[in-house]
Write a protein that binds this DNA or RNA. Sequence first.
RNA 1: GCGCCUGUAGCUCAGUCGGAUAGAGCGAAUGCCUUCUAAGCAUUAGGUCGCAGGUUCGAUUCCUGCCAGGCGCGCCA
Length: 572
Amino acid sequence: MVKAATGSLAQMSESSAQTLVQTALLSALNRVIAAGELTAPLPTEINLDRPKNREHGDYATSVALALAKSAGMQPRAVAELIVKSLTENDLLTAAGISKVEIAGPGFINITLDTASQGAVVIEILKNAKKFGHGKWLSDKKINLEFVSANPTGPLHLGHTRWAAVGDALGRVLSAAGADVIREFYINDRGNQMDLFGASIRAVAIGKDRPEDGYHGEYIADLAAEISKSNPEFLKLSEDEAIAAFRDAGYKLQLKQQQSVLDNFGTHFDIWFSEKSLYEKDFFHHSLEKLKSQGHVFESENATWLRTTDFGDDKDRVIIKSDGSFAYFASDTAYYVNKRERGFNLCIYMVGADHHGYVGRLKAIAACAGDDPEINIEVLIGQMVKIMEGGEELKLSKRAGTIITLEELVEKVGVDAARYTLIRYPTDTPMVMDVDLLRKNTNENPVYYVQYAHARICAVLRNAKEFGIKYGADAYQAALLSHERERELIGLLAEFPRVVQGAAEMREPHRVARYAEELAGVYHRFYNDCRVLPLGDEKATELNSARATLCLATAQVISNALDLLGVSAPEKM
RNA sequence: GCGCCUGUAGCUCAGUCGGAUAGAGCGAAUGCCUUCUAAGCAUUAGGUCGCAGGUUCGAUUCCUGCCAGGCGCGCCA
């Protein structure tokens, strides 16, 4: 778990170029309003954008457009007042601004002076792995639940998307200062488990598996392994044998899932057993809690939760009329359990085929007396298809149904699989092209980004060999005034905002897209700005400054990839 | 029928808490390595942002309706 931001980080965010500019603008605006030249509410924050067009400067704000209406003035007139105030009150120099312009309908475009803009490189080197981290979500204690597969078979493609995205989201949330526990909910009770046990037993004794049982090849493997180490199981009565095979199979299968996830770089803090919700009478404790909120009722011999009180389509049965627990019973108890463990935000990542659950999950929170807008979030992952040789792969030898996580990794490797799954928003269905993921070209974004990192490492190895000094001590920000250098530095400075956005919107794909953009900007810089001296040239301070910029860029690419759980190789 | 998601370049997709001339990769055409990793870079070409209204200084972005596609609507788990 990542600790909350340190003092130096806090300092960093207070002194970053963006913040200095925002402060200056706010101050200028404040004075204009105080002087009575403008009648408008003072905004709490000035929205700074990076203009798409480089001619519009390093930052732009539309604050004048936003205020024009309430001020009853033309937007450009408001902008002029702000700019005049900036200049007359001598706020520009302190904020590191070299140029302010009013453009278009009333945008204020701001250009930083080179030295001030380049200062971020020092911050990156100083904070190293922590650059981009912050404490935006430090008030959140998050339970992040994902994958949560049944322990009755291998993990398939749908699980794989969450294994990658959930893990990345966990990293991003931690980087944003949240206290995050990653949890895997094991559905280790109910009919499915019994069917699983019956399927293994059937194979072990050479009978046909139940019609609605499990039919993958792995069942036979489990049956063979269990029969070999527990020959006595074969002599048990049917019921006893089913239970014995079920429990033994469960252990092996869970272990297999754990090892596959481990190999995939996805880590869980807690493996939570559904069955454990029924131990020590916890379930009844949770039911009492719900009852005390007044949304539990009895009808037709069953116990229900009136989820329709909170927008669900229909009320849900908790205890069936035969006295057994509905699956939903576990959902209610599990939610109560999470809250009692102190989480103020429970995030569920579920597949699109379960999106009908969103309403009832949110209703559970509301029925428990919580605010479903605050304490619970359900993220939906759309389907993943996989193509190879122009055709959709549907059958897995192993699982009997669809491609497994393990098979995907065998085909394309961990980095390519993870990266590809993460770089799309999860509410979009996606298609993975195995042939493309095997290519080592920039059709394959993961290589594009990794290559940029490896390339920088090569440059820095050479720099070292040539005795060129680089690092914070050898860095003179004012020397980096080339358009490509400014572009690169400007984008490096954006990284913390990207992390913040990815965390707040629960969209780790933003980090991947940023990494791709950064790699592209670096490649262009590399092409136009020679880092090392040519031939017999003597090394200059510019060589040192550029090499230092390279070092900072490698750090940020590495930090971004780290948030995705993808490696940043030094050589390729 | 009801609910959720999606519709952006020939293809795969970004962008959308409202902002200036809508982006990237691939595919197509043409250039750049006797000097840092060419797994790279540059130029050109390509668009009714599904359709129609509304909200306003401004809409691909927000609202409504429609069209098309995907998924879901159990006392299953």
